[in-house]
Design a protein around this nucleic acid. Structure first.
Lengths: 150, 150
DNA sequence: GGTAATTGTGGGGAAAGGTGGGTAACGGTT
DNA sequence: AACCGTTACCCACCTTTCCCCACAATTACC
């Protein structure tokens, strides 16, 4: 499932964040509005139930002898929670995820293919800043982008 | 049985640790809430009754002539205890397991496929630190992760 | 442009979850 | 048989989470 757009919200003292209405509508179609939230690359990844099921399937096939990949599973699966927006469309972000992603006040939610992401506003701005710098300095990156037909 | 999420607790002076409520619920479905706890890879592994039965089945097929594997069985099966959470949802971790996993105060419980794990907070942070370093330095690992469809 | 619906934010109260401690049963040892 | 340390079970408190309701702001629609 693909998600589109960028949304800014504030996380309240209780740790609740609003989920964009269009995303909620899309999630309603598949599961009963629930989705899965986990930690990755300095932000939170959110997956629709059936996309997450596919991922879990693959995670459970990782051999327990593969030390590095096991560490990844500990991190990724260990981070996950199933969440359901309340009647106002918010979810409660567990303390562990809140601190991982550095969510304190201003929050950005981004659509992505197969998922959406929850960022602290400050971190997301840094990330974008880095990208803009690189796209100017790295001709290879620019070529890769134009290869997408953009 | 798959377990999801990360939970932080404190182990009290009596050696009791809380078990995450969602895990307790899942364990209730199969056995009467009991599970099996043993020592492995610097932490404690916890298995639901039927998953553990499968493991014992395989352990009992290890030929007694296989010296190395026998050492493993001694270690793994020798460490195991069956535990049942009390009315408050805690278990008593036997001293031998407590010292093996270095559990003193702060404890992390992690969901994994087929089991959950009990870590000392400090050790788990080291483990995660190592992983994050490797994922940045090792492009092969990053590729393996993205191959999971993430 | 005015009205209605939707969306986002804040807060209160009830329920659940987690922590600490007391006391009685148990088991092993002298 | 008495003693000591450990375990099991119980109760009480505090914090967090869940589920409401209310209001402000924005958007959609006539």
């Amino acid at each position: 499932m693909i998600f589109r757009g960028r949304f800014e919200y504030t996380i309240d003292p209780k740790g609740r964040v609003n989920i964009p209405a269009p995303f909620r509508d899309r999630l309603q179609e598949s599961a009963q509005g629930s989705f899965f939230l986990t930690n990755f690359s300095d932000c939170l990844y959110a997956f629709a139930a059936d996309d997450w099921a596919r991922i879990e399937e693959r995670l459970s096939r990782v051999p327990s002898t593969d030390r590095k990949m096991n560490a990844f599973v500990r991190f990724f699966l260990g981070g996950v929670v199933e969440v359901v927006p309340d009647k106002q469309g918010r979810i409660l972000v567990p303390p562990s995820l809140r601190s991982y992603a550095g969510l304190e006040k201003e929050v950005v939610i981004l659509g992505m293919p197969n998922r959406f992401e929850i960022w602290s506003l400050a971190r997301w701005q840094e990330e974008i800043g880095r990208f803009e710098k690189e796209v100017h300095e790295d001709p290879g990156l620019a070529r890769e982008i134009s290869a997408l037909g953009i």
